[in-house]
Lab assay of single mutants.
Amino acid sequence: QCIKQELICKWIDPEQLSNPKKSCNKTFSTMHELVTHVSVEHVGGP
């Protein structure tokens, strides 16, 4: 049986000017979605 898990993006953008810096905190249900999000939204490139 599949256990529902919540994956949370903890990326902190080093360019943020606010202190304390905020992490992204978007939630995902699969590791694939999380990896895709980080690749596209934070790292950039294909």
Rank of each mutant, 00 (worst) to 15 (best):
C24N: 01
E33A: 05
C24M: 00
E33G: 08
V38H: 09
I8W: 06
D13N: 15
Q5D: 15
H32T: 11
N19L: 08
I8V: 12
W11G: 09
I3C: 02
K21V: 09
K10Q: 14
C9L: 01
T27A: 09
G45D: 11
C9A: 02
H42E: 00
S18E: 04
E6L: 00
E33T: 00
H37V: 00
P14H: 07
Q1P: 00
V43S: 15
G45I: 13
E15T: 06
Q1E: 10
L17D: 13
E41N: 10
L7M: 14
G45C: 10
V43Q: 13
S18H: 04
N25Q: 13
L7W: 07
P46A: 03
C24I: 00
D13E: 07
H32S: 11
S29N: 07
V35F: 12
K10V: 04
L17R: 06
W11A: 07
K4I: 02
S39V: 05
K10E: 13
L34A: 03
H37R: 01
L34E: 02
W11C: 02
T36E: 10
M31F: 04
S23Q: 14
L34P: 05
S23P: 12
Q16L: 12
S29E: 15
G44Y: 05
E15Y: 08
K22F: 05
P20E: 10
E6F: 00
L34I: 01
T27F: 13
L34V: 03
G44R: 12
V40E: 12
K22S: 09
T30D: 10
T36S: 11
K4W: 00
V40P: 02
T30P: 00
F28Q: 02
P46M: 14
I8G: 11
H42G: 02
N19G: 06
T30H: 03
P14I: 00
F28P: 04
E33C: 01
G44D: 13
V40T: 10
D13L: 08
C24Q: 01
M31Y: 06
S39R: 12
L7A: 12
C24P: 01
C24G: 03
E41P: 00
Q1G: 07
L17E: 14
E41Q: 12
P20G: 07
G45E: 10
W11R: 11
N19W: 02
C2P: 08
L34H: 03
K22Y: 05
Q5N: 11
L17V: 13
T27I: 15
F28Y: 02
V40Y: 06
T36D: 10
P46C: 13
S18R: 07
I12K: 09
Q5H: 05
L17N: 13
H32D: 12
T36H: 06
I3T: 12
S39Y: 01
V38F: 12
T36W: 09
G45L: 08
N25D: 10
E6H: 02
N19P: 09
H42R: 01
S39M: 06
N19I: 13
P46V: 05
P14S: 06
G44V: 06
P20M: 10
T27M: 14
D13M: 03
S39Q: 14
K22V: 11
E6K: 02
I3D: 03
T36F: 04
L34S: 03
N19F: 08
Q1H: 09
G44Q: 06
T27D: 12
P20F: 05
I12G: 06
K21L: 09
P20I: 04
W11Y: 11
C9M: 01
S39I: 02
S39L: 05
G44E: 07
T30C: 00
S29G: 11
E15N: 06
V40D: 12
I12D: 10
N19C: 00
H37A: 02
C2E: 13
P20S: 03
P14M: 05
T36N: 07
N19T: 13
G44I: 05
K4M: 09
H37K: 01
K21E: 12
H37T: 00
P46G: 06
I12F: 08
K26P: 03
W11V: 09
M31D: 15
K4R: 03
K10C: 08
N25L: 12
G45R: 09
V40A: 10
L34D: 01
Q1L: 05
E15S: 11
E41G: 06
T30I: 06
C24H: 02
C2H: 09
I8L: 10
E6W: 01
T36R: 11
I3A: 03
C9Y: 01
L7G: 04
S29K: 11
N25Y: 05
C24A: 01
N25K: 12
K10S: 10
P14V: 05
E6R: 06
L7E: 13
K4D: 14
I12C: 11
E15R: 07
S39A: 13
D13C: 08
N25A: 15
I8Q: 13
E41R: 05
K10A: 07
C2W: 01
Q1S: 15
